[in-house]
Write a protein that binds this DNA or RNA. Structure first.
Length: 545
DNA sequence: TGAAGTTTAA
């Protein structure tokens, strides 16, 4: 059976190889400032991650070592000094598995020294790909001398919840309870958040009511987590219901009220927000900066800046001065409302209050200025914050990159990615989104593929919206082969393409009279629907521990 | 990600 599997993998490998070659030959408009490696060798010796990957990097698809040649062997040595085992395992996990069980089988012959760091990195890399993640997770636990930490369990629970594999997730939780000492409030909060995120609000609430069964205290903190989840996942209604119901059983604190007020504000129900604030006082809690700031944010959304000023006055008279968060919100809202000048005046007002800017404030400032097309100013602000000892973070770079992309400064956008590496700032998925969009728009296939490989190296896993972006973008530019490849890949990871995505793909294929490809896509959609149901019985069969 | 703010749309 193992042989059969390998045969299939090699065949896929071949198909991929052909496609990749075709992509490479027709990407005409590659900008000449972008340095490409001259031969395959040039990417081997470099400490610079910023070279195009070899062809083989994209072909690495299977568990087989038989096709290894000297070039693949070089890849096993990682540039960033990470455990070599990590790359080996990743390569195996990248094959398309239909169940965690198959992953388990594929890993069976490996003998690798497992560590918590390795586990967590693999989970991060495959955090949007629950089948390999879970197969690996179970396999790792069976390795001699290794037991998962409670943190790793929590990460796994979160991955399953994110991919809506709730049956599997509950199976894992049961296992954690059985093993003892593994379930914490963090675990159960993740469960509640993921349930609420999938619009299963009642199940989230039920989880809270049953929380003591899992050995977690049913206290104010746990309640606040539930309330916050319900508000953030857009159901203030459920939050209020729970709040009123639980009030006598569990004493609320000031945070409970702030969570609810914030919920009302986000839902733009200002009357109710003020009402809750009154009740907060009745309960003996004074509104604080957070309370007022939530309200200010709501008025900013309404662009009611006079009301914003009124609240600011009220804050001062109540001896509760605004802080950097408050000012950031106001400045950002003014900037978004195209009142750039007013926005910049906030800076002065802030200084008068003795409030010093922090990273988020500068990020916001960069965003506003960048949006107005003042990229040089954006750069100056970046320099200024560095000089003032406020260190830029991922969001700073993401904002700068996004602004550069929006204004067709692709060279500086890619250079910023380099700068991030230099300052060892770890990119996240949002770093790449504007760059990927740009590549689609400009038909830069090589750079696109390069970026995707780069993302993988940085343990960033593609999510539904990124796949959607790629399919849309590539269809728009007639790169239908690649678009369908990504569609296939997303389905294989258990994502169900949106109807809109499907329509775009089909229409594009029809325009190109590509009947065969169209049939393939239609079949893929059927497969996507049926994948939803499968693979649910794994945990029951495979006991961990 | 999580008691408030910063990257997000034709």
């Amino acid at each position: 059976m193992a042989c059969l599997q390998l045969g299939a993998i090699n065949q896929r490998r071949l198909i991929r190889y052909e496609l990749f070659n075709r992509f490479c030959t027709y990407s005409p408009e590659l900008p000449d400032w972008f340095k490409f490696p001259q031969g395959e060798q040039s990417c081997v010796n470099s400490n610079d991650d910023f070279v195009l990957p070899t062809k083989l990097e994209f072909l690495e698809d299977g568990a087989s070592n038989r096709t290894h040649d000297c070039r693949t062997d070089v890849r096993v040595v990682s540039h960033d000094g990470k455990d070599v085992n990590l790359d080996d395992i990743s390569r195996i996990l990248k094959s398309k598995f239909t169940s965690p069980e198959a992953v388990f089988v594929a890993l069976d012959h490996c003998s690798v020294k497992i560590s918590e760091g390795l586990v967590n990195t693999v989970l991060r890399r495959f955090s949007n790909d629950w089948v390999p993640a879970f197969g690996f997770f179970i396999w790792a636990d069976t390795q001699v001398g290794y037991k998962h930490s409670s943190d790793s369990y929590d990460v796994m629970v979160d991955i399953l919840g994110k991919s809506k594999q709730f049956d599997v997730m509950w199976g894992l939780i049961d296992e954690m309870v059985r093993l003892g000492g593994l379930v914490s409030l963090t675990t159960m909060t993740k469960v509640m958040r993921r349930l609420a995120g999938a619009c299963r609000w009642n199940e989230a609430i039920k989880t809270f009511h049953d929380i003591e069964q899992f050995g977690v205290k049913k206290d104010t903190l746990a309640m606040n987590n539930l309330l916050d989840t319900l508000c953030k996942e857009r159901s203030i209604k459920h939050a209020i219901h729970v709040f009123l119901e639980l009030r006598n059983e569990i004493p609320p604190n000031a945070s409970s009220f702030n969570v609810i007020i914030h919920g009302w504000c986000k839902a733009r129900k200002l009357e109710e927000a003020w009402q809750t604030m009154k009740e907060m006082r009745k309960f003996g809690f004074n509104p604080c900066v957070i309370t007022y700031t939530s309200l200010i944010e709501a008025y900013c959304m309404e662009k009611d800046f006079r009301m914003v000023d009124a609240i600011l006055d009220e804050m001062h008279t109540h001896g509760c001065p605004p802080n950097i968060v408050t000012y950031t919100i106001i400045m950002h809202a003014l900037g978004k409302a195209k009142e750039t000048h007013e926005a910049l005046k906030v800076f002065d007002k802030m200084k008068k209050d003795g409030c010093t800017p922090d990273t988020s404030f500068y990020n916001s400032l960069i965003y506003i200025v960048g949006r107005a097309g003042r990229l040089c100013d954006a750069n100056d602000i970046y320099e200024e914050m560095c000089k003032n000892g406020i260190s830029p973070n991922v969001n700073t770079y993401n904002t700068l990159i996004s602004a550069a992309c929006d204004h067709s400064q692709e060279e500086s956008a890619l250079k910023l990615l380099l700068k991030m590496e230099e300052s060892s700032c770890k990119p996240n998925i949002k770093t790449y989104v504007p760059l990927l969009k740009l590549c689609c728009k400009r038909k830069w296939t090589k750079i696109l593929l390069y970026l995707l490989a780069h993302m993988f190296k940085k343990d960033i896993s593609l999510d539904l919206s990124t796949y959607t972006l790629l399919v849309h973008g590539l269809c728009q530019n007639g790169k239908l082969d690649q678009a369908s490849l990504f569609l296939e890949e997303m389905v294989s990871k258990g994502f169900i393409p949106k109807e809109h995505t499907y329509n775009i793909m089909i229409r594009a294929l029809e325009r190109g009279n590509m009947e065969r490809a169209k049939a393939k896509v239609q079949q893929l959609m059927v497969q996507a629907q049926s994948m939803k149901q499968s693979s649910h019985h794994f945990v029951a069969k495979h006991q961990i521990g």
